[in-house]
Simulated scan of single mutants.
Amino acid sequence: MKFVAGAALLAMGLSACGSSSSGGDSGSGASGGATGGSGGGLKVGMAYDVGGRGDQSFNDAAAAGLDKAKSELGVEGKEAAAVNGESENARQERLQQLIDAGYTNVVAVGFAYASAVGKVAAANPDVKFAIVDDASKDSAGSNVDQITFAENEGSFLVGAAAALKSKANHIGFVGGVQTDLIKKFEAGYEAGAKAVNPSIKIDVKYLTQPPDFSGFSSVDKGKAAAEGMYQGGADVVYHAAGGSGGGVFTAAKAAGKLAIGVDSDQAKTAPADVRDVILTSMIKKVDVGVYDFIKSVKDGTFKAGNHVYDLKAGGVDYATTGGKVDDIKSKLDDYKQQIIDGKITVPTTPAS
């Protein structure tokens, strides 16, 4: 069956957007907000998580994969963004409306779409789906590519960087929403920092708890959490909080301390006035996973199932933009190789 509740309203939102080949298009942030891209052949719909294109982090990384596919593969894209607090039906409707608009290859960005992808994929067996950050049975299907990452491994490296650079032996972690996925970031960060300095102090703060996902899009909450850590003595704070990370950078700038970005190389994407406080970023190559999915469909090599992008596969890494880790790069690369070689096994859940 198709999911049609609220379809008329959503269809209006999807059809109201013009087509453009520009990679800078952005959704309205509402369930019907979408943008189209010109091109021929394959048509790809992208359903963003809360924050949408322009969050300078997770969603923008996914958008970069779609933009590359538009440029290199000539695909046509349409985009729609989630809003905080929306119902499960709204996510299902968003996916179905992309399909009904002719975008029969769909990327769902974020684990919040797990159940919606599973249900809509089962109802549309001829449509190819990809979901980022979920490998659960909820989203599994013969037409679903589950794209996941070893966030713990990349976070280990930036945790080591934080400990190597901290003069106070006191660092922090701000998580957007307290879920098992974000705990992977925390676990890796903690393990990397303690590999360098077993006695380092690590503050941890989650901005919201499920089902409240506003922790990924609340700059004020991110700023307040980081301010508290800096005032308490931390001198490096890592965020895994999506759009809320902008507040962490603002707090770092005001305190004269350092911050660590996530998902994208945020020393390139954050506002210019805060880039100088970004020590490094844990790069999660969502763009690669999205592009690989689209290319596999175009090439006829699509395979369902969970595809894991880890350090060995080049799916996660740390950024060097700004030169702030140049003096410790050899140490970070040694940790990186030990993880790849299996000499270091990075935990996926926090120690405490």
Rank of each mutant, 00 (worst) to 15 (best):
A7I: 10
V127H: 03
M282S: 05
S166I: 10
V286W: 07
L181Y: 04
E190H: 04
D134R: 09
G261N: 08
K336V: 08
A140H: 11
K257H: 05
V75K: 08
A82I: 03
T320Y: 13
D276R: 14
R53V: 15
Q209W: 15
V219L: 12
K336S: 07
D333N: 13
S166E: 11
N124D: 07
V286E: 01
S20E: 03
K223C: 03
A150F: 13
K70N: 07
D138H: 09
L258F: 08
L10F: 13
S352H: 08
K268G: 08
T250C: 02
D327Y: 14
D60G: 11
D220N: 11
S244T: 01
N197Y: 00
S21R: 02
D203V: 11
I294K: 01
D333W: 14
E186P: 01
G247K: 03
T301I: 12
S19C: 08
Y238C: 01
D134Q: 07
K343G: 09
V106M: 10
D134F: 03
G45N: 00
G228Y: 05
P125K: 12
G18T: 10
A267D: 07
A101M: 08
G315P: 09
T250K: 05
K137C: 04
G74Q: 10
Y238G: 00
G243E: 04
Q338I: 13
I147N: 09
F129K: 05
V177S: 08
D317P: 02
D292C: 14
F216S: 05
G215I: 09
G27Q: 00
N152A: 02
A82F: 10
A30G: 11
Q209F: 10
D235C: 10
Q338K: 15
K295V: 13
V237E: 03
G172L: 06
S38P: 14
I131E: 03
V204C: 01
V50G: 02
N306H: 14
A62R: 05
K312M: 10
F213N: 04
N105R: 08
T345A: 08
I340V: 15
R275M: 06
G32Q: 01
S281E: 14
I99A: 03
Y113L: 05
T345V: 13
V50I: 15
K312D: 05
S139N: 12
V174K: 04
G41L: 09
Q92C: 15
Y238V: 00
T148G: 05
D220T: 11
V248A: 02
G300W: 10
N152E: 06
A64Q: 12
A7C: 13
S244L: 00
A319E: 00
V75S: 02
G110V: 11
V277T: 14
V325G: 00
K312C: 03
K331Y: 05
D25R: 02
Y318W: 15
K336C: 11
G74P: 07
E88R: 13
T179F: 08
P198I: 00
A226Y: 05
N105F: 08
S22I: 06
